[in-house]
Amino acid sequence: MKVIVIGATGTLGRAVVRALEPRHEVVGASRGGPVAVDLERPATLDALFATVPGADAVVCCAASGPLVPLETVSDEEFAAGLGGKLLGQAALVRRAARHLNDGGSITLTGGTFSEPLAGGSLGALVNGGLEGFVRNAAAELPRGLRLNLVSPGWISETLESLGADPVGGTPAADVARAYAELVEGGARGVNLVPGHAR
């Protein structure tokens, strides 16, 4: 398959590229790469599918959201926090539905945490919204297209870069296998949480 990986230069994106490259033609896209895309600028999504025609799958690993204090965050900051990860990924799905080959696959990135996280209410809203969106939109997509979501918690390498104990996270390579499973399988409307029993 020809697979577009958005966020291909990040920790998780690089791991997803490595997981898919042995079996597929992978086209990496990122904000600063030769194939440029920014989830907060929908026009770059249109340009992406014009630049990479005939794709069979798209994986989005670029989505991230800030931790913001619920009591003091402004309405504008809160609305901006919905931009890339929630609305940007929804915009990606709408465009991919028009451009991917029949039977193609779209895999988005959400998130999950085992307990409430200080500053995490915006992230919880985004992740809950993504889960509901994927479940419903998967049933609406035409031409046998499949839509799924991967919801990792902390990535071990990210924790290590923050000076925290990486044991509390899941290695990027393990999370990447979840993306590969959804791209190559037949699931539709699934929210896959790496490291949790299914």
Rank of each mutant, 00 (worst) to 15 (best):
A63R: 05
G81P: 10
R98A: 15
G111W: 05
D46V: 04
G120M: 00
A50R: 09
G83L: 06
S114I: 05
L70I: 10
E76P: 05
V93H: 06
K85M: 06
E115W: 07
G111I: 02
L108W: 02
T112I: 13
S74D: 06
P116W: 09
E40F: 00
L100E: 13
A55G: 06
S105K: 12
L67K: 11
L117S: 02
C61V: 14
A63N: 06
L39P: 03
E40L: 09
A36W: 06
E40M: 12
A91D: 13
G119S: 02
G103F: 09
S64V: 12
P69T: 07
A118W: 06
V37G: 04
S64N: 13
P66A: 03
P69V: 01
V52T: 09
A47V: 01
G54A: 09
T109A: 12
G81K: 07
G84A: 13
G123C: 03
L70S: 15
A50M: 02
G33L: 06
G120V: 01
L87G: 00
P116R: 03
Q89T: 10
F113Q: 12
D102T: 14
L48Y: 01
T44Y: 01
L100D: 12
A80C: 00
P34N: 12
K85T: 00
G88W: 04
H99T: 14
L70V: 10
T107Q: 05
P66L: 05
V35P: 02
L70N: 06
D102G: 12
L87V: 10
A57W: 04
R95H: 12
G84H: 11
P69S: 13
P34S: 14
A90S: 15
L67A: 12
D38F: 02
A43V: 11
A36L: 02
G119P: 08
G81F: 05
A62N: 01
N101P: 11
